[in-house]
Design a protein around this nucleic acid. Structure first.
Lengths: 339, 339
DNA sequence: TTAGTTTGTGTTAGCGGTAACGAATTTAGA
DNA sequence: TCTAAATTCGTTACCGCTAACACAAACTAA
């Protein structure tokens, strides 16, 4: 069944004894083409399984209807869920999506960017790798007039770019407030890598919730870790070191890290283990399988973050917003109480 | 800094007062071009940030150096891990990857297929949706001479296609054998949706392990479920219903389902709960957080499945294997004993 | 000196579409 | 009946890039 001669407009035109342009217009439903002609062409196209060559169209139209996404990895559910939001909305508007993982490596991020540039994507959504300090590979896009929207992980110091972020301040504030309302006075805070920009926003949410509710702040109740389990255990050990200042609650920057913390506290038979109430960012489905689950989760609404990113990007592509008129969109978190 | 006139070969040629073809050949390092000319061209291209237009190249070369992947979703770690294998190897060989989710919906799968066809991918890797019965949208590719490799989820009845599969028979055999070796005589089997083709292979692995080790088979110890928690609980209740034939071990087709099962058994205070040993497919990282973790996991090596799929696909693209010479590649599972 | 090579560059056609423009035929209006 | 306006389709140039082929200049060999 393999057909050797590819089915192109030219091929159809010859079969139908018409010109290529008539065939093209008929397939694109131009009003200047006779209805009967259209019907003949469309039937022939269907029967011969004509598939327009996107490269040819891109070349002519000078646009690809492709959105590029660069993100650190696909193993983090935050990112995969955010893609869902992007894809959904992009598809509805006739755009396709190319996803490229940087694996948190700057070199790979540069490669991905160059690849997407060569593919002439109409826009780019990017969550930068944790080592990205120099932005030349991403600035290229704007230099060529291709809009870029940074989401989640973004160059925090740079105001001259479009951003869509989870309102991590509000999420952390809400989590802390929730614990305060349940009567906790000693709430520990376990922060994430200081390189990731929203780490500080979360801490501010924590601090502000304490302040607004007259709960005294204690530097002993704050520690930082990263994705390394050993570091998490060290941090937790420090947080729970002083018997005079023992936390009864914990806010952690990401759920898997929180699980490590909980596991450790249980493993050392912490005397008040059962009373300790924890909250982490993420709301992973695995919570239901834990024996000592967190009391609540901060749902970051990744789908909504993705959707807002693509919405903004499409407005930039369609020139509804000027590319120089830099936008910052915040997506609120939601506290999910388990039980 | 936004430059209005796009930097094309023509633009470079005018700047350098040379012909377009000389510029093209210089950039592609043709031996017939003078070294000094090459240097001049390449420097100018670099300084002006020339980025070749992939659409133009695709159109001319009649190949895109793009591999399409269609899979049900990105939330399942099996798929995201398999992508890692594909991407790694594809990139090394100068190919880019477009990922498209079908969300286990046939209609979306068809849309994805058509999109990738229009993009003229050089090859397709696909894990079909659970409703895919008709393959017209995928057969189009082979009709146009574009090779297709089915991986994991494939049309089991169809021998005329290329397949790369996890050796789920061997994985299940090994898991069952492991439990037998630990002295279990009553090993329950919790299977997955019967529509998914490898469900039967797993069951056969279970059966064969029993047979090879003279453990009597009991139909009461076999049940099926899907991704719905209620159905899993019903299935587990049935498996553990007969006091005369009470399982002491369990093999489950996927870990999250196994976790549901374990959770249920614990919730009903099953008398021998602590003695029951379980194994599921998946080897998810969350196991370390469980209080009653499975004794072992069947690691399906998704990265390796992905890598084998792309390797086969590239061989087909390069005509090292004839497209009609249908291949079937099996990737072994590995039993990971937790400790 | 002449002819054949080598070397380096330009000319040109074409990949598969789109659409402005032109041209022929039909229809409508006076 | 004659002209203007629709209607319908074809001609053509172009998008950015590749590469076969042509061609001129310089070099080599006889």
């Amino acid at each position: 069944m393999t057909n050797n001669t590819p089915v192109t407009l030219k091929f159809l035109a010859e079969k139908l004894k018409m010109s290529v342009s008539t065939v093209s217009k008929a397939l694109n439903n131009y009003p200047t083409i006779n209805e009967y002609t259209k019907k003949r062409v469309q039937e022939m196209a269907r029967d011969l399984h004509f598939t327009p060559n996107k490269s040819a169209i891109n070349l002519k139209e000078k646009k690809s209807r492709i959105i590029g996404i660069i993100l650190p990895n696909l193993l983090d559910h935050f990112f995969t869920r955010s893609i869902y939001g992007v894809e959904q909305f992009a598809t509805q508007n006739g755009y396709n999506v190319i996803i490229s993982q940087s694996h948190d490596d700057l070199e790979k991020e540069i490669q991905s960017a160059n690849m997407l540039l060569r593919s002439r994507v109409d826009g780019l959504i990017v969550a930068i790798s944790k080592n990205t300090q120099d932005f030349a590979h991403l600035d290229q896009f704007e230099n060529m007039g291709i809009p870029v929207v940074y989401y989640t992980r973004n160059p925090s110091f740079n105001l001259s770019c479009h951003k869509v972020l989870g309102n991590t301040f509000q999420g952390c504030y809400q989590a802390t407030k929730f614990l305060i309302d349940r009567g906790h006075k000693k709430i520990a805070y376990l922060g994430g890598p200081k390189m990731i920009n929203f780490t500080h926003d979360r801490f501010n949410g924590y601090i502000n919730a304490l302040k607004d509710n007259q709960v005294p702040f204690s530097a002993e109740l704050v520690a930082y870790t990263d994705f390394d389990k050993e570091n998490t255990i060290t941090a937790i050990r420090n947080l729970f070191a002083n018997p005079e200042n023992m936390p009864t609650a914990l806010v952690a920057f990401k759920e898997p890290i929180l699980f490590d913390a909980i596991k450790y506290l249980r493993s050392i038979n912490h005397p008040n283990f059962d009373e300790i109430e924890c909250i982490g960012f993420g709301n992973t489905s695995f919570i239901s399988y834990l024996d000592s689950p967190p009391i609540a989760s901060v749902e970051e609404n990744p789908e909504s973050v993705g959707e807002n990113a693509i919405k903004l990007l499409l407005q930039l592509i369609n020139k509804e917003i000027d590319i120089q008129n830099y936008q910052k969109v915040m997506v609120d978190c939601k506290l999910i109480v388990h039980g």
